[in-house]
């Protein structure tokens, strides 16, 4: 799922719950809940390696940057917990980036046995059961809803 949606979900959790001891673990869990929903990507469960072969992915990355900018604008002035929750909700995707840039792209198979790589493949990637280009509409719908709720609650 796009970074905008993950970060927005984390920020929304912080704005509604406000208790750091609850917010940060829930923001982290929210990443996996969001990834279990049908979202943008390409079938075959190959992650970034497959997605970056398609031109549409680059348009989605651009949309994502715009979305993140709107999100930052919406939460401007919020407390530190909102920003921390947004980042925490994004964290598991860094394992995906590490897996792609650190292992797959560099063909560094020595690192493929690392704990992060194993956890990423065994749980995180398997959870993404429905990555399809058409699911971009779900991403847009979800981003609109989350940004609206953030604007409403803040």
């Amino acid at each position: 799922m796009t970074a905008t949606n993950h970060a927005a979900a984390g920020a929304l959790i912080a704005l509604t719950i406000k208790e750091p001891g609850l917010v940060l673990p829930l923001a982290f869990i929210s990443h996996f809940v969001m990834d279990a929903l049908p979202h943008f990507g390409y079938p075959g469960n190959k992650g970034y390696g497959e997605a970056l072969k398609h031109k549409l992915t680059y348009s989605v990355i651009l949309l994502d940057i715009i979305g993140l900018t709107i999100l930052i604008w919406f939460v401007a002035g919020a407390n530190w917990l909102t920003y921390a929750a947004g980042i925490t909700a994004l964290l598991p995707d860094f394992a995906g980036l590490y897996n792609y840039f650190g292992i797959e792209r560099n063909k560094n198979h020595g690192r493929s046995n690392s704990l992060i790589a194993k956890l990423h493949k065994k749980y995180h990637r398997r959870l993404e059961w429905c990555e399809r280009p058409w699911s971009l509409f779900i991403e847009v719908l979800l981003a609109t809803l989350l940004l609206f709720l953030i604007h409403y609650i803040k």
């Binding site: 719950i17 208790e19 609850l22 673990p25 829930l26 869990i29």
Partner: peptide, 14 residues
């Protein structure tokens, strides 16, 4: 069970 605990904690916090 994990979801139940998470929702329970939110409700108690609210």
């Amino acid at each position: 069970v994990a979801w139940f605990i998470a929702m329970g904690a939110i409700i108690l916090n609210l």
